[in-house]
Nucleic acid binder design. Structure first.
Lengths: 331, 331
DNA sequence: GTGAAAGCGCTAACAT
DNA sequence: ATGTTAGCGCTTTCAC
C-alpha cells in the first residue's frame, strides 16, 4: 500500500500539496494533473486510520437497532445508507438484541470509532440514552425525546390509527378490537390515542375489553386475537397496530375459520407483501419506512454540517392506507 | 478523551507498560492494579485510529450484500454479528443494490478500512470478485467459487429441491411446475438439479413447459404462475424455489381462486411467517439462515486466526421441510 | 519486567 | 500556491 509520500515524490511535489489537493484545496493545474497521474499509477488510497487519528473525524455514522429480524428496521438502514453513501459517509450497524446493556456497549464502541453522528431506535429509556451522548449529533427513530438536543423521526402514528379506525366506523363497526404494543414502547401510545380519538369523534366509547396490549410479537397478536374472539360479544372488526400483531391476527382468524372481509373486518399495519398475497387482500396502514430512514439521515447530515446539535426537529412521516378487501360493511 | 500517556502517568509507569498490559502481556501485579485503577478513573478507551495505524489491523470485518429488503440477507447479518461481536470484532455492512459497480466501490471502501476479513453474497461474477481481494480472508455465501482461496457457505439446495419434489411425487403428482431463479445466480442451478434428479429417480421426465425461469422477484413468481396455469394441461403441483417466487405464486393462485392444498398443490421456499399465516398453512422448505451466518463468521475467524487464507472449505447447511397443508394427494 | 524512543500516514500551522 | 515540520495516540523494538 503506497502512502502519500510516494505519491508526492512521483508527482514532484510535497506531501502537503498532495494532501491539500486530495482534500479539495486548489493547486496549480499542472500539479493537479501530476498528482492525479501518480495516484492512479500507484493505486493510492488514503489511510483512514491516519486521517482519523489526525482529524478526529471518521466520516462515519452509527446506527443502533434493537433487532434485524424485521423489515421495518432493515428498511431504515437502506434509507439511511442511500443518503449517507452518496455523501461519502459510511455506516456502522449495531444490533443490541433489545438488551439495554448491550446497547450501552455498542454505544461505547461507536464512540471509540469516533462516529460523527448517530441514528438509533433505542431500546433503553430514551432520556437516559440521550444523556450518554455528549454532544454527538443524534436522530432518534420511533421515539420522542423531551431532551431538546436531538431530532426525532416518526410516522404520524396518531393519524394512522385515527384513519384506520374511522374507516372501520364508516363501515358500520362499533365493536372494534384493537391490538396494541406494550406501553414501554413509544408508538403504541400514539396509536392508542388515534384509536380513542376516532371513536370519540364518532360518539363511540372504547370498551376496555376490546383493547388488548402485548409485546410486538406474532404469538402475542395471535393470542390477543383468540381472546377477543372468545368474548361473549366478540368484536366485529379488529385493528392490529404493527406487523407482527397483524401476522398473529391473520393466523388466529384463519385457524378459527374466519375470513377477513367476509366473517370479520381486519385492518393491519405494515406487512404489505403479506397483505397483497392474501385472499382477500388485506387492508393495511403502511409506513413509509424508506422515507423515515432518508429523513433521519438528511437531518443528521444537517446537524453534522452545521456543527450544532441544536438543529433538532421532530419530523413526521405520513402513512398510507393500502386498501384490500378485508373490511366489510355491516348492517 | 484521555490517552495512554495520562494513564501511564497516573499509574506511575511508562506508556509501554500500559500498552503491554492492556494487550495481555504480563506485568507486576502491583503495576497491573495501578493501571486498572487509572483506566477506570480516567475512563480510558484506546483510540482505534492510532491502534489501527500502528498495527494495520482493524478488528473488523466487512459484509457485502446485494440488498437489505429481504429477511434472507438480514438474518445472515444477525448470525454473523452474533459470532463476531462475541470475539470483539465489529461489522461493516455494505449494500450494493445489486450493482456490480457499487459493489466494487464498497470493496475499495472496505479495503481502506483495513478489514481483517470479508463475508459476501457477491452480485458480480464470483471469480472476478474473488480476484480483487488480494489475500483478505473471504467467505462467500450462496455461491460456489472454484478459486480455492475462499470458503463458501450454502444451503444444501440440491437436497432441498430433491426432497420437495419427491414429496409432491409421493402424493401422486407428475405434472409439476417449478419456478426457478435466473441462471445468473448460483442457487437456481442447484435447485434445478435437485428437481430434475428427483423426477428422474421416479421415472418422470421434466417437461420444459413446466420449468419457468425468471428473476427472484414477486412479480416474476406471479406471472410465471399465471403462465403455468394457462397452459392447455396445467400442472397439478407447483414448487416455488425462493421467497419472492413463493409470494408471487401464492398471490397468483389466490387471484385465480385456486386454494393450495385443495385445488392445487404448492411447496414454497423460505417465507416461514407467510407460510404459517396462510390458511391452509403452506408447506415450505426453509433455510437455516441464522446458521448460515454463524457458519460463515466462524469460518472467517478461523481463517483470520490461522493467518492463512488456505483454510477454505465448502460448508453446506441443511434445509428443513416445514409441513403445512398445501400439498394434496391426487388419484 | 520495564522504559525510552521511533514511527505508522496523514493533516494543519506556519513560513515562504 | 507550495513546502517544512510537528504531532495525533498507539505499539514495538531495543536496551536495561
Amino acid at each position: 500500500m503506497p502512502n502519500i509520500a510516494e505519491v508526492a515524490e512521483l508527482a514532484g511535489v510535497s506531501t502537503a500539496t498532495v494532501s491539500k489537493y486530495l482534500n479539495g484545496v486548489k493547486v496549480k493545474a499542472k500539479n493537479a494533473a501530476a498528482i492525479d497521474a501518480a495516484v492512479k499509477k500507484l493505486n493510492f488510497h488514503p489511510n483512514d486510520f491516519a486521517r482519523g487519528l489526525r482529524t478526529n473525524k471518521s466520516m462515519s455514522v452509527g446506527v443502533i437497532l434493537p433487532e434485524l429480524d424485521n423489515l421495518f428496521f432493515t428498511s431504515i438502514i437502506s434509507g439511511v445508507d442511500e443518503i449517507l453513501d452518496a455523501q461519502g459517509y459510511s455506516t456502522f450497524v449495531c444490533i443490541c438484541r433489545s438488551d439495554p446493556m448491550r446497547e450501552k456497549k455498542k454505544l461505547d464502541f461507536l464512540k471509540r470509532k469516533k462516529i460523527d453522528g448517530l441514528i438509533a431506535v433505542p431500546c433503553s429509556d430514551t432520556s437516559d440514552f440521550v444523556k450518554g451522548l455528549e454532544g454527538i449529533p443524534v436522530v432518534l427513530i420511533d421515539r420522542l425525546s423531551g431532551a431538546g438536543n436531538c431530532s426525532c423521526v416518526l410516522s404520524d402514528n396518531f393519524s394512522a390509527a385515527y384513519n384506520a379506525t374511522e374507516k372501520l366506523i364508516s363501515c358500520g363497526h362499533s365493536k372494534i378490537g384493537v391490538l396494541l404494543g406494550p406501553d414501554s414502547n413509544y408508538t403504541p401510545i400514539e396509536r392508542r390515542s388515534g384509536f380513542t380519538a376516532a371513536m370519540s369523534t364518532h360518539m363511540l366509547t372504547p370498551e376496555p375489553q376490546y383493547i388488548k396490549t402485548g409485546a410486538y410479537r406474532i404469538d402475542c397478536g395471535y393470542s390477543m386475537t383468540k381472546e377477543l374472539m372468545s368474548l361473549d360479544t366478540p368484536p366485529t372488526a379488529i385493528f392490529a397496530t404493527n406487523n407482527e400483531l397483524t401476522i398473529g391476527a391473520v393466523t388466529a382468524l384463519s385457524e378459527l375459520g374466519l375470513i377477513p372481509g367476509k366473517d370479520i373486518s381486519l385492518i393491519g399495519f405494515d406487512s404489505d407483501t403479506l397483505a397483497k398475497a392474501m385472499n382477500p387482500a388485506l387492508t393495511v396502514m403502511v409506513q413509509n419506512v424508506g422515507e423515515i430512514g432518508r429523513a433521519a439521515a438528511n437531518n443528521l447530515l444537517e446537524q453534522i454540517k452545521s456543527e450544532s446539535t441544536g438543529r433538532s426537529q421532530i419530523i413526521r412521516v405520513q402513512t398510507e392506507m393500502l386498501e384490500g378487501n378485508s373490511v366489510c360493511s355491516i348492517e
